[in-house]
C-alpha cells in the first residue's frame, strides 16, 4: 500500500515537528502528541493488515442492518497466532475516509464487532482489537438505531468473553467509540496515540468555553500513553520510532506484532474462570476516589 498523500502544509508542519524533535529531545506536549496521533500519514489498520497480518479473511455485516465500513473484522494470522481481528479503519485518502466515515462507527459497526467476538468465543479464538477512532458516529441514524445501546452491550459482553482479548490503541482512542471495542485483558497503546473521554476540542469548548483551548484541555485530561500507563488505564506502551509511527511503517508494525504475540501467549494458559476474574478485577480497580475524606489510590 503506497503513500499517496501529498500535502505541502502537512509536510512543512511535519518538518517543523521533526526539527523540533531533533533540536531538543524534551518530552512532547500532550497537544503535540495529539497532532502526531492525527497525522495524515499515520499508519491505519489497513497498513497493519498488509504489513503484519497473514491470511486475513474479512467477515462482513452485523446481521441486523448493514456492513459498517468504519469497523472491520475477520480471521487473521499474526505471527504464529490465529486470531479474530477487529478494529476501526479510517482509510488512507479522502475517498476512503468518506467511505469509512473517518473511522466513526455506527451501531451496526459495534454489533458487527460483537458478532465476531461471540463467534471467536465459541471456537476459542483469541480476539485482537485495533482502536483508532475520533469517536462513535454522532448522527441521526446512529441514535435511531441505538448507538448507546450498542456500545453498552459491547462493554457488558466483553467483560465476560471466555477468550483472551488484546486491545491496541494505534491512533485516536475517542471516548465511548473506542471503549466499545476496548475492554481487554491487556490494553496496549502506541507512544504517540491518545485515549480520552472527550476530544480536547470538545472538552475545551465546554470547560473553557472555547475550542481554542484544546491544548490546555489535552494537557489537563491526561490523554497520553505515558499518563494513562501511570493511571492504570493501559498496560503497556509500544514505542514508536523517534519521529512518530508515520516515519517508519515497517518498524512500528513489527513492534505492534511483537507486542500482540507476546501478550496473547500467557493469556492462553489461563483457565476461563481465571481469565474472566482477572478482567473483572482489572476493570473493577479502575479510577481513583476518596474514602472517608482520605484519598486512596487503587
Amino acid at each position: 500500500m503506497g503513500l499517496e498523500f501529498e500535502n505541502t502544509d502537512v509536510l512543512i508542519e511535519e518538518q517543523k515537528m521533526t526539527d523540533k524533535q531533533k533540536s531538543n529531545k524534551k518530552e512532547l506536549t500532550a497537544w503535540e502528541i495529539v497532532s502526531i496521533s492525527r497525522h495524515p500519514k499515520r499508519p491505519v489498520l489497513q497498513d497493519y493488515l498488509s504489513l503484519i497480518v497473514d491470511n486475513f479473511v474479512e467477515l462482513h455485516g452485523d446481521r441486523y442492518f448493514s456492513d459498517d465500513k468504519a469497523m472491520i473484522g475477520g480471521f487473521a494470522e499474526i505471527g504464529d497466532q490465529k486470531v479474530m481481528l477487529i478494529g476501526h479503519n479510517k482509510g488512507k485518502n479522502t475517498n476512503e475516509h468518506i467511505a469509512r466515515n473517518f473511522g466513526m462507527a455506527k451501531p451496526d459497526g459495534y454489533r458487527k464487532a460483537l458478532r465476531l467476538m461471540k463467534l471467536a468465543e465459541r471456537f476459542k479464538i483469541p480476539i485482537v482489537t485495533i482502536i483508532d477512532t475520533p469517536g462513535a458516529f454522532p448522527g441521526l441514524e446512529a441514535e435511531e438505531r441505538g448507538q448507546a445501546e450498542a456500545i453498552a452491550k459491547n462493554l457488558t459482553e466483553m467483560a465476560s468473553l471466555e477468550v483472551p482479548v488484546i486491545c491496541v490503541v494505534i491512533g485516536e482512542g475517542g471516548s465511548g467509540g473506542a471503549l466499545g471495542i476496548g475492554v481487554g485483558d491487556k490494553v496496549l497503546m502506541l507512544s504517540n496515540a491518545i485515549y480520552s473521554v472527550i476530544s480536547p476540542e470538545g472538552c475545551a469548548s465546554i470547560l473553557w468555553r472555547d475550542a481554542a483551548f484544546a491544548p490546555d484541555a489535552a494537557e489537563a485530561m491526561n490523554i497520553t500513553a505515558k499518563a494513562l500507563l501511570k493511571h492504570g488505564v493501559i498496560d503497556e506502551i509500544i514505542e514508536e520510532p523517534e519521529e512518530g509511527a508515520h516515519s517508519d511503517y515497517k518498524a512500528i508494525a513489527e513492534s505492534v506484532k511483537k507486542a500482540i504475540v507476546k501478550n496473547i501467549k500467557p493469556l492462553k494458559k489461563l483457565s476461563v474462570e481465571e481469565l474472566i476474574q482477572h478482567r473483572f478485577e482489572k476493570f473493577s480497580g479502575m479510577g481513583k476516589f476518596s474514602i472517608n475524606q482520605s484519598a486512596t489510590s487503587r
Binding site: G182, S196, V197, V233, M286, K288
Partner: peptide, 10 residues
C-alpha cells in the same frame, strides 16, 4: 479524563 471513561467498562 479517561478514568471516568473507564467507569463505563467497570
Amino acid at each position: 479524563g479517561a478514568l471516568s471513561l473507564m467507569q463505563m467498562a467497570k
